[in-house]
Design a binder for these strands. Structure first.
Lengths: 239, 239
DNA sequence: TATCTATACTTGTATAGACAAGTAGTATCG
DNA sequence: CGATACTACTTGTCTATACAAGTATAGATA
């Protein structure tokens, strides 16, 4: 078993290989994953290296290991929308993308504002701004406003939000590492009332979110129509 | 370096020791943690064992490691209230516990109900039920109702919720592994209106939560007074 | 038939040693 | 003085081996 010239994350290669097999469908949920010993042989590695790869995949929730039995592909849980806000009604249909009839882009612009400070930017720095109304079968259900740090997503404004939602696009280009949500029940402003076609005294859900991606901040706020119920699914992390 | 008779989670002892030093204040944020080599010597372990301990503590966010430099105590982030709902105003003061004047226990009982089904229980099985109103300087801000699977917390009803909040107690006895939140803006029922001293048309936040702990379910719902803003902090997990 | 037992396999933990790679400080040289 | 090389220390990765401990299965036993 020859020592590699550059011991550079061999365990990473093993991990990727297993993940590839899972994502390609070669290994299906509950299927048996090769044992540490076999993986070590395949990759010309020691068992400890294969062990590390499988241990990390366990922590990441992709496989399940049972002492004395073996390693198996974990059943994927429906938490893909992790910390993502989705209408329950549309949770499933949303998966395939956006229908242009469901979105109405009200604003898409670059501006400077005092908001800069809250986003770890200097006053005067440019910020991307967008306002979008989401509809479900022509009924407006969400009024969403975003302020984006251009460094996070330089091509944000060039996107066609009738084809890809800002959420989808941003998740794609910038890994969200941490999120803070502030939630409030409100009755809302005239401009929004009109967009959502609701009456002044109806209770709306207001969700403000700040997300961090490598110390860069994006803020996002949505107003949700009365009666719409939203779902927030998250895994619990113990400290 | 003698091999221990029973290799039983020596790395766990090292972890606990470091955590103890951090929590006791012996090691403060940014302080240097003993190097792998030194820890290994102290515990009569090999470097790999110390390495595993420190690696896991890194993943848990308690320390920061820099190759070539050393290991340091991480600055605690204010996300201890992970996926826990807290009034922003009280976020800090809450840390020390509960003042009895801030809580009003309306109900604390055992019952059987059709809710059992939603909690992976058989119809007819006993369920613990509690209703509590939280107040901030005598102003009611939260109406919270809980249904608990007795298997999760057998001594739930015996707790004195004037001394420990249900959240605190439950987190203590049952590790929450997954949570689902459903959030909605509502105008609420008479009984609740009265407890929260609000008018019928005021917008309230309603949060329903189901948590899982080893396949056992607890449900929790709170109604939040108008104007109260709540904060939900979570770390993002990529799959 | 039901129960125990050996064994073959798995994962979990631990060791001792090795080299790679990054950082900070010190000594040296031009 | 400034750049360079060296050194001491750190964490990161890897190996080869060992024993502990959990599980399943086949075969022997009562």
């Amino acid at each position: 078993m020859a020592r590699p010239e550059q011991p550079f994350a061999l365990y990473g290669k093993i991990k990727k290989s297993v993940v590839r097999d899972i994502e390609s469908g070669k290994l299906k949920p509950d299927d048996r994953v090769p044992s540490e010993t076999k993986l070590a042989q395949s990759f010309n590695a020691s068992r400890m290296t294969a062990n590390r790869a499988l241990k990390e995949l366990t922590e990441e929730g992709r496989i399940i290991r049972v002492q004395g039995v073996g390693t198996f592909v974990a059943r994927p849980k429906p938490d893909a929308a992790l910390l993502e806000i989705k209408s329950i009604a549309k949770e499933i249909s949303d998966w395939g993308g956006v229908h242009s009839s469901e979105v109405l882009v009200l604003r898409k612009e670059e501006l400077t504002s005092k908001i800069a400070q809250k986003m770890n930017l200097k006053p005067g720095d440019a910020i991307f701004h967008s306002v979008i109304v989401h509809r479900d079968r022509d009924v407006p259900v969400q009024y969403s406003e975003r302020f984006i740090n251009p460094k996070v997503a330089p091509f944000y404004l060039e996107q066609d939000f009738y084809k890809i939602t800002p959420s989808e696009y941003l998740l794609d280009v910038a890994p969200v590492q941490e999120a803070e949500h502030i939630i409030e029940a409100v009755t809302c402003k005239k401009e929004i009332l009109k967009s959502l076609k609701i009456k002044p005294d109806e209770p709306c859900l207001c969700l403000k979110r700040r997300t961090w991606s490598f110390d860069m901040v994006a803020t996002y706020s949505i107003i949700v129509s009365p009666g719409s119920r939203y779902k927030l699914v998250g895994k619990f992390i113990r400290r």
